[in-house]
Simulated scan of single mutants.
Amino acid sequence: MGPTRRDVLAMGLATCGWAAAGGTAASAQPAHRPVPFGGAVYLPDLEADPRLGDAIVAHCQAVTPVNELKWISTRPAPDLFDFAASDKIADFARTNALAMHGHTLVWYAELPEWVTRLTSAADAERALTEHIVTTMQRYGDVARSWDVVNEPIPDAARRPTDRRDSHWRALLGDDHIAQAFRIAHDVDPDALLVINEYDVEFATGYFPAKRQAFAHLIRELVDKGVPVHAVGLQGHLRGGVPIAKDELAQFVADMRELGLKIMVTELDVIDRDLPGPADVRDAIIAAQVEDFLGAITASGPLHSITTWGLSDTYTWIRWAYGRSDGLGNRPLPLDENFQRKPMFDVIDRFRSIV
């Protein structure tokens, strides 16, 4: 019997470089193979606009579900899983020989009400374990990387030891982070397990302290032998806020010395306060993405780059950071007509670093 479709897909996912926690598949890539590129997708957008699916297939090697794998979507009740929406994105990935990056297993936000009513550590640990095991097992063929813990650092960290408050932390303590990684590793020892965070790339305000706390947490986990394999830098860049190029480069170099891969997981640029003309704005955005990617590749190539959406038509920034001048936001590599913008040229250039 020849290889099954699943066998072919597995080979395709491995060769795209999105697999293998230990780096076997990625390191085996030919030197000329670009760093894998992915886009986040929201199922209603994918179903409503065929152009979006076509663009993902044309440009991407992976997709990340925006909301469909979050607890609020998959866990309507303690004894009930609802994977209807996430199954559709997984099937889209399988059909088009794409990987699916799992987002996210543990997050402080968007929890169903029944989770917030849990009052004992035993119940919280049972719910967390069941969720991670069931979700990872369901998508083990197509999701070879996971944001195991998302956004564990508070915005205004006062000390390097500060961790974000959450219901998980209230019931299980700070060790819930290590617990989640250990459970995930037990489920799938070959999956790439990621700790994911935002707002660690800037030079001013509360950002340096947040970066320091994130680094402290990662070192603490690695020192304890927790199976963390990659650092996810979301990259929701704030247009006009300077990138801390030297400090960010050092942070990434330190993470690489710990043996961790570096992934850009949610790249876009919040352009609410940037000038109106499209060509001017696009140039500023491209330059900021250049600064960001330049800093984090100074010590080596990225494992992957993912943008939070692909076309300006479908971006969370439109409702979260709409412009006062009424112009449409332009945070992503493709414009409203799915045409390439300068941001995409910058991404492609950094994908070629080996």
Rank of each mutant, 00 (worst) to 15 (best):
Y198S: 12
D199A: 08
D199C: 11
E201T: 02
E201Q: 01
E201M: 00
F202I: 01
T204N: 03
G205Q: 05
G205P: 02
G205M: 05
Y206D: 13
F207E: 01
P208Y: 02
A209L: 02
K210Q: 12
R211T: 09
R211C: 10
Q212F: 00
F214S: 08
A215Q: 07
I218H: 04
R219N: 06
R219P: 01
E220S: 07
L221E: 10
L221H: 08
L221F: 13
L221R: 03
V222I: 11
D223K: 03
K224I: 09
K224H: 14
G225Q: 13
G225E: 14
V226Y: 09
V226T: 11
V226N: 06
P227K: 01
P227Q: 07
V231E: 08
V231A: 11
V231K: 00
L233D: 01
H236A: 05
G239N: 14
G240N: 08
G240E: 12
G240I: 08
V241W: 02
I243P: 07
I243W: 10
A244S: 06
L248A: 08
L248R: 07
Q250T: 07
Q250Y: 00
V252Y: 04
A253R: 13
D254I: 05
M255A: 15
R256M: 13
R256N: 09
E257T: 02
L258A: 15
L260A: 10
I262D: 03
I262M: 11
M263L: 14
T265W: 02
L267C: 11
D268T: 07
D268N: 07
D268Q: 08
V269G: 13
I270F: 06
D271K: 05
D271H: 12
D273G: 08
D273H: 04
L274I: 15
P275Y: 12
P275G: 05
P275M: 09
A278F: 13
V280M: 15
R281M: 14
D282K: 00
D282V: 01
D282F: 01
A286R: 12
E290Q: 03
E290A: 07
E290L: 00
E290H: 05
D291S: 04
D291C: 00
A295H: 06
A295M: 06
I296M: 14
A298H: 02
A298V: 07
S299Y: 04
G300N: 06
G300F: 02
G300R: 01
G300H: 10
P301E: 02
P301A: 04
S304H: 05
T306D: 14
T307F: 11
W308S: 06
W308A: 13
W308P: 08
L310H: 09
S311Q: 10
